[in-house]
Design a protein around this nucleic acid. Structure first.
Length: 893
RNA sequence: GGGCAGGUAGCUCAGCCGGUUAGAGCACCACGUUGACAUCGUGGGGGUCGGAGGUUCGAGUCCUCUCCUGCCCACCA
């Protein structure tokens, strides 16, 4: 496939040059499609369908990065992997944005009429729908585009009607006139979830209600909404309130209105609030509505659907609510019925989409009787058939589900799934059907469809199975349902996840997915991102500037499930630098490992014949990283997994192994050099596979380049793409090699440190003697590395030293004892100070180690391995102390 | 009113079942052009893990209380 090689690889990675090329190739090769195998359990996930309201933002990019990483990982593990992409018509949200656009031309949807308005919306959907798909492709998502779904497609639409009819037939959908949240701007009912409460500055008016037939006596009530007094049909007090026992059952005159209403007793009244007496307005307050129902009170409507006072409001008819409030207060004041008005901050409901203040009004709406659906949904999570990650959200879920109220599903909008109910005027009767009926089945009369549409979440609630062909019994549905995973932001746990669980169990008799992974929200500069705050990061711009891989890494590294994360340009830059580092390390390997020697196998990593200690070390470390990353991914710890690979690649492979390899390739014999080249290539190859879920493009590009030769062989057994290469499995560890090389690294570090401390010019070689003790032979084998990396030359390695050399900088590190006999760098006072400092530190460690081991509680109760570790550590520290002390003594002579 | 999360180096965050000397990236300081990489390398400074108490041989990690910050839910009008 790829023809580029080291010589052609640019000095720095240019993402734009490769991303679109690779994506097109993957798509053409069909890698995104599941390879169905009836014997294997599939990995299934549906994409949370983005709203077609506009472009994708960084939150969508986060979703895509997490899901694609998991999808790629599972695919590499050989699971038949299906990722269904989709988009949501987003009823009210989309209608609002299109209306907003019309408003700029001075038009409303009524100017166009239903039909033309819907054409306009479809136009919008086509424009933004394809932008969204392009953005997703740019992000590298490996979803099955052939199954791209839209909530308004015929399939999902039939699913919606089928579900509606099913619930209706079971008596779980009903129509009723109840008090419901109404947005006067959108002109529609809203569900409880679509109302956002915020603290607004308001007022609290204390108003006198004269008692009937008790001249001069009155009840004072406190209200934030004096204008609704016009619709009062009672006053309520708490039955246990001693202050009001005498008035229960009495009648009061509604101030400003010539209406006598009863004083009722209801325990919903809080005695502590205001005066303890509550005005009851069943027509305009949900609590009052319920109290009204309990006491058989009538409901009066003084506020209309347009948010203005109705004819019932008499003199105030036609006024907006705010103005009616002010004027009515004036009237009360004039009549001496207003005791006082206090400023008052309280929670006021606003429309989620347009922010208009919501009015609770009595309207005829369709509802889902939710309790029978909620119970099995609660049980599914309670019994572990669905697992929520992080677990703490299970509590949130239970709390909401256990207090759930009926779901208002009808919307007086134009954009959405039309409610599948038809009315026959002649009979009269209502018909609920999946297929549009042409005439009344009873009398043959003409039918009229219900003008309303469904809450957009009704259709998204069916997503895990409506995208697989439900209500038909399709092979897809049988194989891929339940989905394995639902991945989304915790902000739509109730809106979406809970509804999918309820509707999924109802429709399919089984949970819609097994795991729910909830990610956090992205914040920029400490704030939630929003257009008004002007801190919106556009994923396209980020990908242009830093590349897709870096953008995706920035979104995944350092994030934990359910926690919000901070994204900033520094982080993107760091990730871009990492991608570049990977690119350059690959260039080194490509330049030094001839094409014919590139790995033709993806088998678990084992050290080659003739491997040096560093070769064995890096192989062992690589195997450790495979195990660790696999474990972390299995635990949904994507951030940690990505960071682990990153640290290995940069901190161990590049910083140490490549540097050692450079020397080994210069000084070793042919066999040793071959072993090093093999190790360089295979460790890199394996690391590319580990990183592929997080950085798909650069890893594929490098993999193709690295393996170009073996891939091109006629008899190759390699898969043609890293995307479908097997996920690595760990080979054996080599504890001895790990320990030894880590000690050598410590020695080199200490030597470098000492050089800098003594201001030795970096380029200068300094002679050194190292005492190897029992490890002399091993150490001699890596002498060129120590010599080269610490710039020590000539380097003498001895098993023992009769006496420390004079006029030498002494050093103890990694269990080795070393001397840099450079007389001109030597300064007794400085060396003494340095050694004493180190000695003091070691003494401290020895003291604490001795104290622990002297504690019988520790030696008896702590695990044997921990005690053993402490013993070994103590011995090592004591040994180190002896050496430091000897060096210090030598200094004094 | 109820619930949840976070408070660890100047900043952004890791730290799994409690186990020796708490980590990373960025920022900071010093030095560095040996052909993978200055989008880099080497070395360094910097934190008694919000506070108090407790459990334990041992606590950033568990428990209680407390103070900040953010979020969610809720019918005190």
């Amino acid at each position: 496939m790829a023809t580029t090689d080291a010589a052609e690889l640019a000095k720095a990675y240019d993402p734009r040059a490769v991303e679109s090329r690779l994506y097109a190739r993957w798509l053409a090769a069909g890698y995104f499609k599941p390879r169905i195998d009836p014997r294997r359990r599939p990995f299934t996930i549906v994409m949370p369908p983005p709203n077609v309201t506009g472009r994708l933002h960084i939150g969508h990019a986060l979703t895509a990065a997490i899901e694609d990483a998991l999808v790629r990982w599972h695919r590499m593990r050989g699971e038949p992997t299906l990722w269904v992409p989709g988009k949501d018509h987003a009823g009210i949200a989309t209608q609002v944005v299109v209306e907003r656009e019309l408003a700029q031309q001075g038009l409303t949807r009524h100017d166009l009429g239903r039909e033309r308005f819907l054409e306009k919306v479809w136009e919008w959907v086509r424009t933004y729908g394809s932008i969204i798909d392009e953005q997703h492709k740019r992000l590298g998502v490996s979803c099955d585009w052939d199954r791209l779904a839209f909530t308004m497609d015929p399939g999902p639409a039939r699913a919606v009607r089928t579900m509606f009819k099913r619930l209706y037939d079971k008596g779980l959908i009903y129509r009723g006139a109840r008090i419901t949240n109404w947005c006067p701007r959108c002109q529609t009912a809203l569900s409880d979830l679509e109302v956002e409460y915020q603290d607004d500055e308001g007022l609290l008016a204390y108003v006198r209600y004269p008692l009937v037939e008790r001249e001069g006596e009155f009840l004072t009530i406190a209200t934030t909404r004096p204008e609704t007094i016009l619709a009062d049909t009672a006053v309520a007090v708490n039955p246990a309130d001693p202050r009001y026992q005498a008035v229960i059952g009495a009648r009061v005159r509604v101030p400003g209105v010539d209406r006598e209403v009863p004083v009722v007793a209801d325990s919903a009244v809080e005695m502590e609030f205001g005066t303890g007496a509550l005005k009851i307005t069943p027509g305009h307050d949900p609590v009052d509505f319920e109290i009204g129902q309990r006491h058989g009170l009538p409901a009066i409507t003084v506020i209309g659907l347009d948010g203005r006072m109705t004819a019932e409001a008499g003199a105030y008819a036609g006024l907006p609510v705010e103005e009616a409030r002010a004027r009515f207060l004036d009237e009360l004041r004039a009549r001496g019925l207003l005791e006082r008005v206090e400023p008052y901050r309280h929670r006021v409901g606003h429309c989620q989409r347009c922010k208009t203040v919501v009015e609770p009004l009595i309207t005829e709406q369709w509802y889902v009787r939710i309790q029978p659906l909620a119970e099995p949904a609660i049980a599914a999570v309670r019994e572990g058939r669905i697992r929520i990650i992080p677990e703490r959200f299970e509590k949130v879920y239970f709390n909401w589900m256990e207090n759930i109220r009926d779901w208002c599903i009808s919307r007086q909008l134009w954009w959405g799934h039309r409610i599948p109910v038809w009315y026959c005027r002649a009979c009269p009767r209502e018909i609920v059907a999946v297929e549009t009926p042409t005439a009344c089945p009873a009398c043959g009369g003409p039918l009229e469809q219900d003008p309303d549409v469904l809450d957009t979440w009704f259709s998204s609630g069916l997503w895990p199975f409506s995208t697989l062909g439900w209500p038909d019994d399709t092979p897809d549905l049988r194989y891929f349902y339940p989905n394995t995973l639902m991945e989304t932001g915790y902000d739509i746990l109730f809106f979406w996840v809970a509804r999918m669980i309820m509707l999924g169990i109802e429709a399919m008799g089984d949970v819609p997915f097994r795991d729910v992974y909830l990610h956090g929200l992205i914040r920029v500069e400490g704030k939630k991102m929003s257009k008004t705050a002007g801190n919106v990061l556009d994923p396209l711009e980020l990908m242009d500037e830093y590349g897709t891989d870096a953008t995706r890494l920035a979104l995944t590294v350092g994030t934990t499930p359910g926690n919000d994360t901070e994204l900033n340009l520094q982080k993107l830059e760091a990730c871009r630098n990492f991608v570049n580092k990977l690119w350059n390390s690959a260039r080194y390997v490509l330049l030094n490992v001839p094409a014919a020697e590139r790995p033709a196998t993806l088998a678990p990593l084992t050290p080659p014949a003739g491997a040096s200690a560093p070769d064995r070390w890096i192989v062992s470390r690589a195997n450790h990283v495979v195990a660790e990353v696999t474990r972390l991914l299995g635990d949904y710890q994507l951030g940690e997994a990505a960071r682990t690979v990153q640290e290995f690649l940069w901190g161990e492979y590049c910083d140490w192994y490549v540097e050692m390899a450079k020397i080994q390739l210069r000084v070793g014999d042919a066999a040793a050099q071959a072993a090093t080249r093999y190790t360089l290539a295979r460790v890199l190859e394996q690391t590319l596979r580990l990183l592929h879920p997080f950085a798909p493009f650069v890893t594929e590009e490098l993999w193709q380049t690295l393996l170009a030769e073996p891939l091109a062989r006629a008899d190759t057994t390699l898969p043609p793409s890293i995307m479908i290469a097997p996920w690595p499995t760990p080979g054996p560890r080599d504890a001895a090699a790990e320990a030894f090389v880590e000690d050598v690294i410590e020695l080199i570090r200490a030597a470098r440190n000492l050089r800098q401390e003594r201001k030795v010019e970096p380029a200068r070689y300094v002679p050194a003697t190292v005492v190897g003790g029992a490890r002399t032979a091993e150490l001699r084998a890596v002498a060129p590395l120590v010599s080269g990396l610490a710039r020590l030359q000539p380097l003498e390695i001895v098993d023992a030293l009769a006496a420390p050399p004079r006029q030498a900088l002494p050093l103890v590190a990694g269990g080795f004892e070393a001397y840099l006999p450079a007389a001109e760098l030597f300064d007794v006072a400085q060396e003494r100070a340095r050694l004493e400092r180190e000695l003091a530190e070691v003494e401290r460690l020895i003291a604490s180690g001795e104290a622990r081991l002297a504690n019988p509680g520790f030696t008896q109760k702590a695990p044997a391995a921990v005690v053993e570790g402490a013993r070994r550590q103590l011995l090592e520290n004591r040994e180190r102390r002896e050496r430091l002390a000897a060096q210090l003594r030598a200094l004094e002579e």
